[in-house]
Design a protein around this nucleic acid. Sequence first.
DNA 1: CAGCAACGCTAGCGGTGCTAGAGTTTCGGT
DNA 2: ACCGAAACTCTAGCACCGCTAGCGTTGCTG
Lengths: 190, 190
Amino acid sequence: MSTQTRRERERAERERAIIAAARDLALAEGWDAVTTRRLAAEIEYSQPVLYSHFKGKDAIMAAVAVEGFAELADALATARASAASPRQAVADVAAAYTTFAEQRPALYDAMFTLAVDLPFASQDVPTDLARGFAELADAVRPIAGDDDLEAVTETFWSGLHGLVTLMRSGRLRREGHGRRLAVLVDRFSR
Amino acid sequence: MSTQTRRERERAERERAIIAAARDLALAEGWDAVTTRRLAAEIEYSQPVLYSHFKGKDAIMAAVAVEGFAELADALATARASAASPRQAVADVAAAYTTFAEQRPALYDAMFTLAVDLPFASQDVPTDLARGFAELADAVRPIAGDDDLEAVTETFWSGLHGLVTLMRSGRLRREGHGRRLAVLVDRFSR
DNA sequence: CAGCAACGCTAGCGGTGCTAGAGTTTCGGT
DNA sequence: ACCGAAACTCTAGCACCGCTAGCGTTGCTG
């Protein structure tokens, strides 16, 4: 029993190492730099080992994204909790969202622009993803008015996502971000 | 002189054929299916010929995107021109934008999510891209109020872009699109 | 201690974007 | 009319990608 548990533990540690290596490499050099060969070298094992843990590279990216959902949900919860007023909560949550995307671009990509397949149909992803969405919805609720809360939240989220992705890809100049964010919050708050 | 002009003409036609083949292939099977080998086979030349016309695959995608900018600008102009009122113009332009993205996903990807490098620093792209943006700005102007028009337009554009990309990647259910679009337009119009 | 099962390795497959160098065709000057 | 040069397109190949078959070793179990 002890040897088996040890091997299971070692295996779990190695899986964590893979995810950590993928995350670090992506944050440092972008997802293009994350190849199975570099990942294998990083954890000091051969390539096929990766495939005994994950179905493929997409699954590894999905695992990294899962961590990101938890972090984003935490960031949004913190922002909402420390806001002085409901109106301020919307602005703070919005700012926290774009800041998260700006500071962890590779993580944001894995969560929302790449890795389309696996994570959304999985089991534990909806938990943290739904938590983040719920934070957004709670912030939006006071300003939803007569509109359907889910629709307003999704639309507000889309606005944030659009701001983030268009700025990150160079379509929007970075210097106007604050003003655009203020416009978005204001238009949804009035 | 005549032979030289003939060769130049043939060369121009071949360049158009490359762009058309890339566009058709991308629309039919997505950009992943667009490889330099398939492209070369499609135009019935060898691979290296592509590189005598374009710097690389990205440049080919950028050329396809350029065509897209013109089409999008036309679609927005048509929608705005046929609108009964300024308020209706915003809604119609927004609908035209998301419809364009929905019906030509590969084209939209080339324009706004892939091919980050080349097109925006180029010469003729800003023309059609600016034209599309101007259509958006003209539609938004009556509802800009005291806010800076450019900031409002960029933010409204971000909302549309976010709706489109999140829906296309499966993050937003397709059935709620109409309601979300109405929310966006309404929040910006009031 | 023998047999077996689990494990991680080397080697390789088919694919990618891209390029060097050879071979062919066409042009321009004598 | 011919021949050297320039322009052009091809074949072949490079380095890389994600992924996998099959072998060899290791360590557990009866």
